[in-house]
Simulated assay, not measured.
Amino acid sequence: MTTGLLALPTAVADPGPGARDGSRVEASAIRLRADPRSPVSAADVPVTDATSGPRRTSPYSMLGLTWRGTDPTSLRFRSHGREGWSAWRTAEVLEDGPTPGTEGRPRRATQPVWVGPSDGVQLDVRGSGHRDLRLVLIDPGVLPSDDDVQATAPAAAAQRPALRTTASKPRKRPKASPKPRLLTRPQWGANERLRNGRPTYNAGLRQVHVHHTASGNDYTRAQVPAILRGMYRYHTKSLGWFDLGYNFVVDRFGRTWVGRSGGPTRLVRGAHTLGFNHSSVGIAVLGNFERTRPSRRAVTAVVRLASWKLDRHRRDATGRVAVRSEGSDRYRAGKRVRLHVVDGHRDTNQTACPGELLYERLPGIRRRAQWRIDHYGRG
């Protein structure tokens, strides 16, 4: 079964996307609506098999699909932008999520995909058993701070810890792995009104879970805050989660962004690793690493962040730990599993995340994080 997009009853005067390259387009458009007091606009519309074909839209840059019931067997889309229609792409099913019953509605979803500036969309969804299928289009908008020099400075400035010195005191090495430079929620433009409730906190830290966002690799520095705003809107409004699911997000330029609210130095419970959120922190690298290698700067940022968090809680990055599952699609609730302290999402759930080419970097990430822990000592 092929499912097409349900047309909205909004007439358009022009032929819409595809007119320049000969594709047929229906004379109705999907209109995004602005969130109150926010640069973000979005549309969340039902999909049926009543009609098919390309659809004109208001400008958008991020796309996702949500549904109830079983997963479709195929989720493909193409977007229309300045260069015409893109090739057909597969949307990856989202396997991140909160602990069951703690936040959100029971909806399945794809990862939100960054497609860049677009004004048209076409879907090809196949399979049976899914219901209430909805298309989500998001335009994160632009803020003056997106291009701010402080928000776009490379992470190289955080390579060495800043140490205060005086004429009478010698330079001292930190007694613990130093905190990396963190870019804040206000710097990426988080609209705190979107949050659904308050943060909860874990009793301890046993693991660092590494993810990828599967959202695209060709973003610019200035687009990263917008991507985070789009993901945040998708997680909270489309999925009903309390907040952005990841505790931290690392981009390909080596910058580390605070994700979920509640305090980056605290043990905030995330919605990143279904069944294993209760004793961990989630770090997502922005991009898809099934066929693209993560940048050296991104890997280094993960090393610094993991070593800082683990050293604060007396954990060794190269070790293993026994963890009790709270219920995932790989380990039933109550099962005790022995896992790496620094692991990939696929170690706990049935998913390709964090992508083969990032997953193969995890042994090196563990060794480098442990070196930092050992080098700086434990005060």
Results as ranks from 00 to 15, higher is better:
M1T: 07
A7C: 08
L8G: 08
P9K: 05
V12K: 04
A13F: 10
G22C: 11
A27Q: 09
A27F: 11
A29T: 06
L32V: 09
L32G: 10
D35Y: 14
V45M: 07
V47I: 12
D49W: 11
S52T: 12
P54Y: 13
P54K: 00
R56F: 12
S58W: 00
S58Q: 04
T73G: 09
F77A: 15
R78Y: 13
G81E: 09
G81N: 14
G84W: 12
W85N: 02
W85K: 00
S86C: 03
T90Y: 03
L94S: 10
D96K: 01
G97C: 06
P98K: 06
T99G: 04
T110K: 06
Q111A: 12
V113H: 07
D119M: 07
R126L: 08
D139C: 03
G141Y: 06
G141L: 05
V142W: 08
V142G: 02
P144V: 00
S145W: 04
S145L: 15
D148P: 10
T152C: 13
A158D: 15
Q159S: 12
Q159P: 00
R160K: 13
R160D: 13
A162D: 08
L163M: 13
K169S: 15
R171Q: 14
R173Y: 10
P178H: 03
P178E: 09
P180F: 00
R181T: 14
R185Y: 01
R195F: 05
N196K: 04
N196L: 14
Q207N: 09
V208Q: 04
V208A: 06
V208C: 01
V210H: 00
H212N: 13
A214W: 04
D218Q: 11
T220K: 13
R221Y: 03
A222M: 08
A226Y: 06
R229L: 13
R233M: 02
S238V: 07
S238R: 11
D243H: 01
L244A: 02
F248E: 11
V250D: 11
F253Q: 10
T256S: 08
G259D: 09
G262V: 00
G263Q: 05
T265D: 15
R269M: 02
G270A: 03
T273C: 02
S280G: 11
G282E: 02
I283S: 05
A284L: 06
R293T: 03
R293V: 02
R297Y: 14
R304Q: 15
S307K: 03
W308E: 08
W308D: 05
K309I: 01
L310N: 06
A317Q: 07
G319E: 14
R320C: 06
V323D: 01
V323F: 11
R324G: 10
R332V: 10
A333C: 06
G334Y: 08
R338K: 12
R338V: 09
H340M: 09
N349H: 10
N349C: 03
A352C: 01
E356S: 12
L358K: 04
Y359H: 09
G364P: 05
R366D: 02
R368P: 07
Y376G: 11
